[in-house]
Design a binder for these strands. Structure first.
Length: 261
DNA sequence: ATGGTTGGAAACCAA
């Protein structure tokens, strides 16, 4: 079972790039973030033609997440529980009906900048809701992968130049603490399971030659329940995708699980 | 010192 997560930064603006990558990587499941379109505008036929079932939780202009799967999807949940007034499309979850099923979520955590504003408050509140929901899901004691753009730099080694992020919402102590709290519930970071080296980044800004100078950060993760982590086989961070034509500012992260084991 | 979206210029959002 190959599961990928990728913040595509507009699926329609980048459709040829995304299609080229997904055909080459051939994941069983793909979690997209920042599709930046409503459900009706998602180019579902292009992915269905490649053998994917498609479920989206879209929004006009901003945010929006999607789940694509070569296996049937069921038990689809759109939106993160815990705040009925939250209208931002940042969470979709489904059961992947493979021979050995796995529950997968595509997550787009709020950015939270600038700090000291209601945006940062919203980020922390969203993190707390995610903790609460993850706690519920973990009681199922089943294979589970919470994948996406977490918009947090967990450790200094997850940035080329940590000092440059000192005042940024992504590297605030409260953001990092919230991410650790999620981990300590019992979700393993695939990056650690795979022992990827420091300097394995998933995002480089479009500006100021960040890619050319490798001024990246690691903010896209595949978090695994014990039942999934036990079957972890490999992780690949597709750095080469940052050099494609019309690249996203994020690159895909791909994990392989041996669910038959 | 960019790029996407909206809306038909410049503002907002991204991280």
């Amino acid at each position: 079972m190959r599961i990928a997560t990728w913040n595509v930064n507009s699926v329609n603006a980048r459709l040829p790039t995304v299609l080229e990558w997904i055909q080459a990587a051939n994941p069983d499941v793909a979690c997209f973030q920042e599709i930046k379109c409503v459900d009706e505008k998602f180019p579902r036929e292009a992915f269905e033609d490649l053998g994917y079932n498609v479920e989206t939780h879209g929004q006009k202009s901003y945010n929006g997440v999607a789940l694509l799967s070569k296996f049937p999807l069921s038990d689809v949940r759109r939106g993160l529980p815990g705040d009925d007034a939250d209208e931002q499309a940042r969470y979709i979850e489904a059961l992947i009906e493979a021979p050995r099923p796995i529950r997968v979520a595509s997550i787009y955590l709020p950015n939270g900048n600038p700090i000291g504003t209601e945006k940062f408050t919203y980020k922390l509140a969203w993190f707390e809701r995610l903790q609460n929901h993850a706690r519920e899901l973990l009681t199922l004691e089943e294979p589970l992968a919470l994948c996406g753009d977490y918009n947090v730099i967990p450790e200094a080694e997850d940035a080329k130049n940590p000092a440059a992020w000192a005042e940024d919402a992504l590297f605030q102590p409260q953001s990092r603490e919230a991410f650790r709290a999620l981990k300590w519930l019992g979700l393993a970071d695939s990056h650690e399971l795979g022992r990827e080296p420091p300097g394995t980044f998933t995002f480089w800004d479009y500006q100021a030659g960040a890619w050319r100078r490798d001024h990246g950060i690691r903010i896209d993760f595949a978090m695994l329940s014990p039942q999934a982590a036990d079957r972890f086989r490999a992780i690949e961070t597709h750095r080469d995708a940052r050099d494609m034509d019309k690249p996203s500012d994020h690159v895909p992260v791909v994990v392989d699980l041996d669910l038959e084991a």
